[in-house]
Design a protein around this nucleic acid. Structure first.
Length: 573
DNA sequence: GCCGTTTTCGGCCCGACTGTTTTCAGTCG
C-alpha cells in the first residue's frame, strides 16, 4: 500500500513515541525520530538494501538497521511489539493532541487509566483531572481546544495520503482484464486539501472481474458493501474506498457526476433542463424522448450545454460556470508550467538530503532553475552561521549549470521575528539571490501585532516571498489570526510574492485565501519547501491548490523565464 | 541509539513560552 520507506518511517516514529511515553531515554527517542525522518526521505527503497546499505543512511546504526531488516523480513519488530504490549495504542493517540506530550500522556494513563482521546474527554467532563498534578484549568482548556482541532479534521485525510492510495488502486485495477478505463474522481480529483473517502471509477462491460480484484487488494481490510455497480471497502488504515463500474460509453457522464462538486453538478443539471436535457451519471438525455444525447466524455457533455471543459479543480460553484459562459474561464496553470522550485532545504539545516542530491533531483524533474533556501540563524535550533551559509553559496555557485544546464539560485528562508525583524542586516541579505521570509513561532500575538509583523517583512526590499503565510498545519494547527487583507495589500504594494506551500500538511496559502489575495493583485510562488529529494514531487499538490485559486501562469512567478523572475526578485523589482 | 573522535565515551538542535511550579517541567518550533 505505502512505500516501504514510509512504512518503516511510521514504525520507527511509533517506537520513538513509545520510548518517550514510557519515560525512556529522551536521546534514544530522538535517535529513532531522526532515523525515521532519514529513511522517509531516503531516495532508495529500503527493502532493496542490506544491513550495510541501511547503515549508510545517516542516523541509522547497527541497532536500527537490524530492526529494519527484521521488519522487512517478518513484518514485525519484536522490540516494538513488546512496547506496544505495555502501552495501549490509544495512549499514543493522546500525544497527537497539541500541548499534550509524552509526559502528560503517561500521567493520564498511569493515574487515571486514560487510554484514548474519548476517555480523556470523559475524564475532563467528569472533572477527574482536577486533583492531578500539572493539570490546572488552563491545561485542561488547552487540551479541550486541541481535541476540537483534531476532530475538526473529521476523519478526513490529507490530500497526499489519499493520492498515494488512489494511484495504487487505479494501477492495480487498470491491469484487470476487461478494464477499458480507470481513474479516481471525487474531491481527490478536485484536489481538495482533505479527502473524506476515495472514489475510483472503472469502465468495463462486465463489472465482476474489477469487483473481484478490488476486494482482493492487499490493503483491503474489510468489504463494507458489494454489489454489481458499486463496492465499498475499508483499507487497513481505515480509509474508505468506493469502486463504481460504469458501462464504457457512460464514462464521461460518470466521471463528471462522481467528480462533483455536488454544487457544480446541480448547476449543470439546471442548465441541462434549460437546454431541454436531463443529466445523470449515465449521460445527457433528451428530456422529451429520453434518448441519449452524449455520455462518453466530459468534453461532449459540457459542449452540449454550451460550455468549454471545466478543469476539476474549478468545479466548486465559485462562479466557474458563469465565467465559462462569458468565455472568461481562467487558463489555469499546469504542473508542466513550473520552471523551478523556490523554497527548498538541505542537510545543512533540517533537510535530510545533501545539496548535490537535491540539485540533481531537481534537474531530473526538468527544472530550468532551482533555489536552495536553508534556514537562517534566528531559528536557533538549526545553528546556521554566516560562515556556513557563505560556504554553501560557494558550493551552489560551483554547481550552477552543471546539471542539465539548470541554473541555481542561492537563497535563504528567513525567520520573521515577533517585531517583524529578520535574521540578517540588509547588507548581508543583499548577497542572496532570493529571500523567503516565514513565521515560525509566536503564533499567539494579537491580530494587530501579527499583521504589522507580516507587513514589515513585506516591506523589506530583500524579501521576495512570504513562506507558508498563515503557518497553518492542516488538522493540527489553525493559521495565525492576522488581517490578511492588509497583508495581501502590502504584498501587492511592495512586490512581494505569497507562497503556495505545496506540502500536503500545509497547502498554505489555501484556495480561499489565494482567491482573496489575487483580487489584491498579488503574485504567487508555488514551492515544495522540500526537506528531501522525495518531497520535490509534492509540487503537484501546490499546483492543484493554485488551480483551485484560479491562478494562471502570469500569476505565478516560478512559471516565468529566469530573466523575468530575476527582475522580480531584485529589490524594488 | 547514533556519531565522531580530543576514537569506545560523552555529547546529542537551542531557546522561549506556558502554566502552575514557588524554581521549573513540559511542549513546541
Amino acid at each position: 500500500m505505502v512505500r516501504p520507506n514510509e512504512e518503516v518511517e511510521a514504525l520507527l516514529q511509533e517506537y520513538a513515541d513509545l520510548v518517550a511515553i514510557t519515560g525512556g531515554d529522551a536521546y534514544k527517542a530522538r535517535a529513532y525520530e531522526k532515523a525515521a525522518r532519514a529513511i522517509g526521505g531516503h531516495p532508495t527503497d529500503v527493502s532493496r538494501l542490506d544491513a550495510k546499505g541501511l547503515q549508510e543512511i545517516p542516523n541509522v546504526g547497527k541497532s536500527i538497521a537490524e530492526k529494519v531488516e527484521e521488519y522487512l523480513r517478518t513484518g514485525r519488530v519484536s522490540a516494538v511489539e513488546e512496547t506496544r504490549a505495555a502501552i495501549p495504542a490509544g495512549v499514543r493517540e493522546l500525544i497527537s493532541i497539541p500541548t499534550l506530550g509524552p509526559k502528560k500522556a503517561l500521567v493520564l494513563y498511569e493515574e487515571l487509566h486514560v487510554s484514548s482521546v474519548a476517555e480523556l474527554l470523559d475524564a475532563i467532563h467528569e472533572e477527574r483531572l482536577r486533583d492531578l498534578k500539572g493539570f490546572g484549568e488552563k491545561t485542561q482548556a488547552n487540551i479541550l481546544h486541541g481535541i476540537e482541532l483534531l476532530q475538526k479534521a473529521g476523519g478526513r485525510i490529507l490530500l497526499g495520503a489519499a493520492m498515494d492510495v488512489a494511484e495504487q488502486v487505479v494501477a492495480e485495477l487498470s491491469a484487470v482484464s476487461g478494464c477499458e478505463r480507470c481513474g479516481y474522481a471525487g474531491s481527490l480529483r478536485r484536489m481538495r486539501e482533505t479527502i473524506g473517502d476515495i472514489d475510483v471509477l472503472v469502465a468495463a462491460t462486465d463489472s465482476a472481474p474489477s469487483m473481484e480484484a478490488f476486494c482482493a487488494l492487499p490493503h483491503t481490510a474489510e468489504v463494507i458493501a458489494r454489489g454489481e455497480k458499486k463496492t465499498s471497502i475499508r483499507t487497513t488504515k481505515g480509509l474508505q474506498v468506493d469502486l463504481r463500474v460504469l458501462p464504457p460509453d457512460s464514462w464521461g457522464a460518470g466521471l463528471l457526476y462522481f467528480t462533483g462538486s455536488k454544487a457544480h453538478n446541480i448547476r449543470l443539471r439546471e442548465m441541462a433542463i434549460r437546454h431541454g436535457y436531463k443529466l445523470s451519471e449515465y449521460g445527457l438525455f433528451h428530456a422529451k424522448s429520453g434518448r441519449k444525447a452524449v455520455s462518453a466524455t466530459e468534453e461532449e457533455i459540457y459542449a452540449k450545454l454550451g460550455l468549454p471543459w471545466i478543469p476539476p479543480t474549478l468545479r466548486e460553484d465559485r462562479g466557474e460556470i458563469a465565467a465559462a459562459l462569458k468565455g472568461e474561464l481562467p487558463e489555469v496553470m499546469q504542473e508542466k508550467d513550473i520552471r523551478g522550485d523556490l523554497h527548498t532545504h538541505t542537510d545543512l539545516t533540517d533537510g535530510v538530503s545533501c545539496l548535490e542530491d537535491m540539485v540533481a533531483a531537481a534537474a531530473e524533474r526538468g527544472y530550468a532553475y532551482f533555489a536552495v533556501t536553508d534556514h537562517a540563524p534566528n531559528l536557533y535550533m538549526q545553528r546556521m552561521t554566516d560562515e556556513k551559509i557563505l560556504a554553501q553559496r560557494e558550493k551552489v555557485r560551483a554547481l550552477d549549470g552543471k546539471h542539465r544546464r539548470m541554473r541555481l539560485l542561492h537563497g535563504t528562508e528567513l525567520n520573521i521575528g515577533p517585531e517583524g525583524d529578520l535574521d540578517w542586516p540588509d547588507e548581508f541579505l543583499a548577497g542572496f539571490d532570493l529571500c523567503v521570509a516565514s513565521v515560525h513561532s509566536h503564533f499567539n500575538q494579537t491580530r494587530e501585532e501579527l499583521t504589522r509583523r507580516l507587513v514589515r517583512a513585506c516591506e523589506n526590499p530583500h524579501v521576495a516571498i512570504i513562506g507558508h503565510p498563515t503557518t497553518r498545519q492542516i488538522g493540527k494547527r489553525p493559521g495565525i489570526d492576522a488581517d490578511f487583507d492588509e497583508v495581501f495589500a502590502a504584498c501587492a504594494r511592495t512586490g512581494t510574492a505569497l507562497e503556495i506551500n505545496a506540502h500536503p500538511e500545509r497547502l498554505d496559502l489555501g484556495d480561499e485565501d489565494i482567491l482573496r489575495a489575487k483580487r489584491h493583485g498579488v503574485k504567487f510562488a508555488v514551492n515544495t519547501d522540500a526537506h528531501s529529494v522525495v518531497h520535490l514531487p509534492y509540487m503537484r499538490y501546490g499546483v492543484g491548490t493554485a488551480q483551485r485559486g484560479w491562478l494562471t501562469k502570469d500569476d505565478v512567478i516560478n512559471t516565468w523565464p529566469l530573466q523575468k523572475l530575476r527582475r522580480f526578485l531584485q529589490p524594488g523589482g
